Amino acid sequence: MCKTPEDARERQAVKPVICYPNETLPEVPLALYQAARDGAEKVGETLVPARDARCFEVPAGHFVRISSVEGSQVGDLNFWNLNDLSERFYSGKTRALHGTHVTTGERLWSSFPTLRPMATIVADTLGWYGIDEYGGSVHDVIGTRCDPYTSNLLNDNQYHYCCHSNLTRALADHTGMSLHEAEPHVHDVLNVFMCTGFTRDTGQYFMKASPVRPGDYLEFFAEIDLLGGLSACPGGDCSAEHSSDEAACFPLLVEVFAPKAGVLDGWEPAAMNGYDRSHGRDQG
């Protein structure tokens, strides 16, 4: 039985402290990126079908834009180092450094031991949304991805078009790996355009209808050579459910842009984290 202590309110009133103050993060050169984006030429395009996924490649120093083109639709995004799939987007550390939702000027960070920026958000047409009265916002790094295992656990079904499954098939198709080989590389996502938060009373993860409309987009600058994977979620705008054959779903467009020659002269891809791991071994 849980007994409320006499000093309960006093304990609850303790002010919070930010775990990872981010004022010392490397400055984001948005002016440089904007100069590089101006006049950039489209060099690639991938249409991600509804309830499906596709992979795409983005060389370092290029831009990639994800757009809503036909209807309100959210997407689950994975990023890997194109040359080493063991380095991948780390949603948990991105959340710790920037917050539960990301927007222009914030970065997607990679997994240990590299822990470096993989991509920087340079444009977000939903940046106006902010945080609503429910605590909801867009482009979250809270959720994992809809997957067949949780769907089976909660609903006792065998749904095969969850974002996890879609991304696994897309990665296998793009790389030539088997599904068994590809699946462990699929990881927690950036929920592009998805509107989410936590309930105030129970602390549960919630979703609500996305504010995205055709013409809205989220755009990144590639800090390293990227392999991307994007699933057009089977929940559509996620106003009711996120693993469904009933929800209205639409494709998403991925476009890659190359800057004009010379604009990024002197720029270098993001360096790996400088921590010397030998120190940790010596302590044992």
Rank of each mutant, 00 (worst) to 15 (best):
P113A: 04
K93G: 06
T100W: 08
H180W: 11
D140H: 04
P59G: 05
N22W: 07
E41D: 10
N191I: 04
N83Y: 07
D7V: 10
N166Y: 00
G284S: 08
C55I: 00
R54Q: 12
L227P: 11
E106M: 08
N155A: 15
V122F: 09
G44T: 02
T125M: 11
E27P: 10
T125Y: 02
T100E: 14
P269M: 06
R51T: 07
S243M: 09
S239F: 00
P29R: 05
P16D: 15
L77M: 06
P259K: 02
V186L: 09
V14L: 15
I142K: 11
S243Q: 11
H164R: 10
V122M: 04
G105I: 04
P211V: 09
P59Y: 01
A232P: 00
A182S: 13
F193C: 04
R277L: 15
F63G: 06
V69T: 11
R277E: 14
T103Q: 09
L85P: 06
E181S: 13
A50P: 11
F206Q: 12
L226E: 05
G274T: 02
F193S: 07
S86R: 12
A8G: 02
A271Y: 00
N191G: 04
C2R: 13
Q283K: 07
D7H: 10
A270W: 04
V28M: 11
T196S: 15
N191D: 02
A36W: 01
S67N: 10
E6K: 12
A35I: 05
M1H: 08
A209S: 08
G61C: 03
Q34A: 15
L179N: 09
R281N: 07
V14N: 12
N157D: 15
L85S: 02
A8M: 13
L47R: 14
Y275A: 07
H180A: 15
F193T: 05
S68R: 12
R200G: 11
N78L: 10
E106C: 06
T168W: 02
I121S: 14
L227V: 02
F56H: 08
A8K: 12
N78R: 10
T46S: 11
C233L: 09
D156N: 13
E223F: 00
G197V: 04
Y129L: 10
N166P: 02
